[in-house]
Amino acid sequence: MKIICSDSKGRLSLVQVEESSPSLDIQCQWGAHKFEAWIAAFNYWNLSTVFSGGDDCLLRGWDTRSTPVHPIFTSKQHSMGVCSIQSHPLRENVLATGSYDEHVLIWDLRQMKQPVSDTHVQGGVWRLKWHPTESSLLLAACMDSGFHILDTASDGCPIASSYVLHNSLAYGADWSTQSPSCNASASPEPASLQANRSDATRSDGAAPNLEQPVQNLKIFYESPTASFDVILEDDHGDYLPETDPVKDLDNKALPEKSKYGPENTSLVATCSFYDHVLHVWRWRWQRTQSGE
């Protein structure tokens, strides 16, 4: 097994982990950035290629089959330090990057001159995670602006949903690799909430399109270090209890439920910095039937 590491001196280190012993062997190490190298990540489709981002505002690709001297590519599209990178585990040639400049960029690795999309998320993008099964969904931890789920299948890569109930910097986020049951009444729920947004699928059924509000967010677990209560209010200041009919953000009734497919549920874990709090919450959404 190999690990790629970045450090505060701007270097990358490719480390070999021996399965038979706990020893670590640095296979190669090289200077990748002028200042801190904030992030390093493998290309999941070609493990000899790694990507790096640094405080010099550069995104770079490297070929590790020999000791890297020159990068495969260098991008200057980000205007501040590049601090998050993730290769897409389900779609070849797709890469997501985030920066202190508050932008999430989606790339096609076959054409690195310009990103495919650029989304301003109002906070430094410290972590990015692709959904394990829904190829268009991207989770972002955005420091001062909370956590956002981006719909990369829609034009402009809009924000499909946001979670802003942490009282500190949004630093870590990840999806559960297992789909939770929609009926989770047995799970402890110190607080619950609803947030209505969208999830319709394209007529070809290939990827979700999150435009019409039909979803539900619920906290499953809040770490014991938390010292505050959390609820969610709509735009009018009204609390949204679970027993209420599902409505959109304008407080209007949604179309007939028969127009929607099976309910989809994802479990998300998010954590914040100074208050040491972990939240585990559920995101529910429904797609419209194909062809509508």
Score class of each variant (00 low, 15 high):
A186Q: 15
P262K: 07
P255W: 10
L240I: 07
P213N: 03
L12E: 06
S117Q: 11
F273H: 12
T225A: 08
E18W: 11
R197H: 07
V121G: 00
Q212T: 11
Y274P: 00
K9T: 08
R197Q: 15
S87F: 02
A141K: 01
Y221Q: 04
Y44D: 01
V15R: 09
H279P: 02
F228K: 09
Q178R: 10
A40S: 10
T270D: 04
K247R: 14
S179D: 07
P255Q: 06
P213T: 01
G205Y: 12
S181V: 12
T97D: 01
A195V: 15
S136D: 04
T288Y: 10
W283Q: 07
G261F: 08
H103L: 00
V69K: 12
S21L: 14
P188V: 13
D234F: 07
S20P: 01
S223P: 11
L95V: 07
R11Y: 14
A140S: 08
S176R: 01
Q111R: 14
A153Q: 08
T152Q: 04
C5D: 02
S99D: 00
C157M: 11
D63T: 10
S145H: 05
P245H: 05
T225K: 14
D174M: 04
W45G: 08
A141N: 05
L169Q: 06
N183E: 14
S13W: 04
D151K: 07
P262Q: 05
L95F: 10
N264V: 12
F42I: 03
N264S: 14
S13A: 13
S176K: 06
Y171S: 02
N196W: 10
E18S: 13
K76S: 10
H33W: 02
L47R: 05
S168D: 13
I3G: 00
C28V: 08
E19V: 10
D235S: 14
S6V: 03
W30L: 06
A140R: 00
G53A: 05
P224C: 07
D238V: 01
I231E: 12
F51L: 08
L193Y: 04
R110F: 05
D101N: 09
P71I: 09
F228P: 03
L59C: 09
R110W: 02
S258D: 15
Q178H: 00
D108W: 06
N93M: 00
L278E: 01
H78P: 01
Q16D: 15
E36V: 08
K259A: 02
D229E: 12
Q29C: 15
H236G: 10
T243R: 07
V116D: 00
V82I: 00
N251G: 06
D155V: 05
L58R: 00
L137F: 04
K259T: 08
E233H: 02
S187E: 11
R284L: 14
S135L: 03
S223E: 09
L12D: 01
P262E: 13
R60I: 02
D151F: 03
R287T: 15
Q178P: 00
E242Y: 08
Q215G: 10
L210R: 08
P241N: 13
D63Q: 01
